Structure formats: C-alpha cells, structure tokens
Amino acid sequence: MKDVAARAGVGLKTVSRVVNGEPGVTPDTERRVQEAIEALGFRRNDSARVLRKGRTASVGLVLEDLADPFYGPLNRAVEEVARAHGALLINGSSAEDPEREQELALALCARRVDGLIVIPAGDDHRYLEPEIKAGVATVFVDRPAGKIEADTVLTDSFGGARAGTAHLLAHGHRRVGFIGDQPRIHTSVERLRGYHAAMADAGIAVRDEWVSLGSTAPERVTEAVAAMLSGPEPVTALFAGNNRVTVTAVRALSGREHPVALVGFDDIELADLLGITVIAQDAAALGRTAAELLFRRLDGAADEPARVELETVLIPRGSGEVPPSAVR
C-alpha cells in the first residue's frame, strides 16, 4: 500500500479510502490511485481487513437447485447486489433436502459468512437461531422460514394461481385440473389454495381427480396429465404449478388432435414462441430484494423482521385462451 501511495502521490489513508470504496476522495485522485494499483498489481489483504472490521465480505446463498432455470436470475441478482457492496457470494444447492439445507447453511456459517440468504427446503429453522444471535444476518426467499421469525421475501403465489385459474374460467372452462409440486412445499400449497379460491369464486366444486401433487419428475407429471384427460368427463384445462410441471405438460399435450388449455406458473424459455400463457414471477426481483434487505441488516438496521411479497403478472399468449369447445 505504501508503494501505491508513493506512486500516486497521496497518503496511505487516501489509498485505503479508494480500496474500501469510502467517500472523501476526488475523482482525479481516485483515478491516480487506481492507475497505481493496476501498475503495481496491488491486491487488498482481506484477511487483515477481517481482523480489523470483524467481517469477511462474503455472503452465502442456499438454493434449491442451481440447475433450475428459475434460480439463475435470482442467483445473478444476489451476486450483483453483493458485488456492489464489495462482498463475495458463495452458493450451493440443497436439492430440496432439509438435512442437506441445514448442513450447507451451517457450513457457510462455519466459514464466517456475514449473512445468509436461504430458499428453505425444510420447515424448521431453529438450527439457525444461534448463528443469527451471533450476528449472521439471515433472509429467507421464495418460502418463509419455519418456526423462527426472520426477514422473508416471497412471490404472491396464492394471488398468482388464483388469477391464472380465473383466466381459464373466464374462457369458459369448468373442469380445470391442477398439477403441482410436493404438498410440503410452501409455494405448492399456496398455489393450490389460489386454485381452490378461484374455483370457489366460480361456484365450482373441485373433484379429487382434478388435483395432483407430488414430484415434478417428468414421469409423474405425464401420468397426472394422462389421468386427468381420460374418462368420460376429462378436464378441459390445466393449471401447472411451476416451470418444471409446465415443461412436461407441454410435452405431454403435444401431438394431440384437439388442444387442451394450459396456464403455467413461472415463465419458461421459448414460452413466447410456443404460445404458452403463464403467470410470471420476477426471480431477479426476488433475489435483488432479498440481498438488499440482507445488506441493510448488515449495515445495522434493527427493526422487526420484514415480510415482502412481490406481485405476479399474467401473460396471455394463446394456450390459456383455448375454448373448452375445442377440447375432445
């Protein structure tokens, strides 16, 4: 650092301010310091910084599945906010396994991350209470924490599913099927609740055979679609509970002589070209909002845990507008 200061013709404190992004440095001085840093190949000593400030400038993100397209924009948004705050993002997948979620979250805490953003796989997060009390800022996103009070950022799954089902009903459908994720997952339960609310609003009693919850594995979803479309009174429309269900439903419905109306929760790649009507949620906004809330806590905000709920958007593209008379 002394060499950088000498080359730029400034004091050590000025170099420190530039390196740590602190105010009080003129643009011209900052430019000279940055040029000296580049010329000398200077790298900040983060270990010393940790000892001095008690923070590691790193945050952890526990996702469900990094391979799921929904989590890509969310992950990127968290990373961008972290970068803007001079922090490194470390992430990992729970694979929807509560034990793996706990193992990963505690491993990140053991590596002294300053904060955690968690997409819950389990429904009991009391294991994080000691970490939170020790100062690890924690925000839950997409699903709420279980058995503890904590900052939470969600999508309005209930309202979105209600709007999507109502859209199918508005186009004349009365036999609407719902295919969702596992019943222990918060978003799955909320979307099923929204479906039931829309059906009740229309005065329609939901039959047991119109609802299927379970794994999003293609085999299971394909079987559910086939079952709902068989029998003397098949459904004339389907509401798919998430992006993975929607993709399999599109495949299962392809090649049919008569189309089946379909609305999916979550936008999917090529949905605009395929004409798939969706209830879209903003995954990037979820990640950005959660990360901004996390860094607000790290900056000292001590108010009561916040619950932020983001709205969804209905995007009609054709599949949800197929009339029941076209279905056989």
Rank of each mutant, 00 (worst) to 15 (best):
K2D: 08
A6V: 01
R7T: 12
R7Y: 00
G11L: 10
L12Q: 07
T14L: 05
T14D: 03
S16T: 13
G21Y: 02
P23H: 11
G24S: 04
G24C: 04
V25C: 03
P27G: 01
R32C: 05
Q34A: 00
A36Y: 08
A36Q: 04
I37S: 05
E38F: 00
N45G: 06
D46W: 12
D46G: 03
S47A: 15
V50I: 08
L51Y: 03
L51V: 10
L51M: 14
S58I: 07
V59N: 06
G60H: 09
L61I: 05
A67D: 05
P69I: 12
Y71W: 12
G72M: 01
E80W: 00
A84L: 13
L88S: 12
N91K: 00
S93N: 06
S93Y: 05
A95E: 14
P98N: 10
Q102V: 05
E103A: 14
A107S: 15
A107K: 14
L108I: 08
R111T: 09
R112Q: 15
V113R: 11
I117D: 09
I117R: 02
I119Q: 11
I119P: 00
P120T: 14
G122R: 13
D124L: 10
D124C: 11
D124P: 12
R126Y: 11
P130R: 13
K133A: 15
V139E: 07
F140Q: 14
R143T: 11
P144N: 14
P144W: 10
A145F: 04
E149H: 12
A150K: 13
A150R: 13
A150Y: 12
V153S: 05
L154R: 06
D156G: 09
S157E: 15
G160K: 10
R162I: 05
A163P: 00
T165N: 03
T165P: 04
A170N: 10
G172L: 08
R174I: 04
R175Q: 13
R175N: 09
R175E: 12
I179S: 06
G180D: 07
D181F: 10
D181K: 08
I185W: 11
V189M: 13
R191Y: 13
L192T: 02
G194D: 09
H196S: 00
A198L: 08
D208K: 14
E209P: 00
A217Q: 14
V221P: 01
E223S: 12
A224L: 09
A227E: 14
G231N: 12
V235I: 13
T236H: 02
T236R: 03
F239Y: 14
R244I: 03
R244S: 07
T246W: 01
T246D: 02
V250D: 03
L253F: 11
H258M: 01
V263H: 04
V263S: 06
A271W: 01
L273F: 15
I276W: 01
I276S: 06
D282H: 09
A283I: 04
A284K: 01
T289C: 10
L294W: 06
R297S: 05
L298E: 11
L298F: 12
D303R: 07
A306L: 15
V308G: 11
E309P: 07
E311Y: 00
E311S: 15
V313R: 15
E321W: 02
E321G: 01
V322D: 05
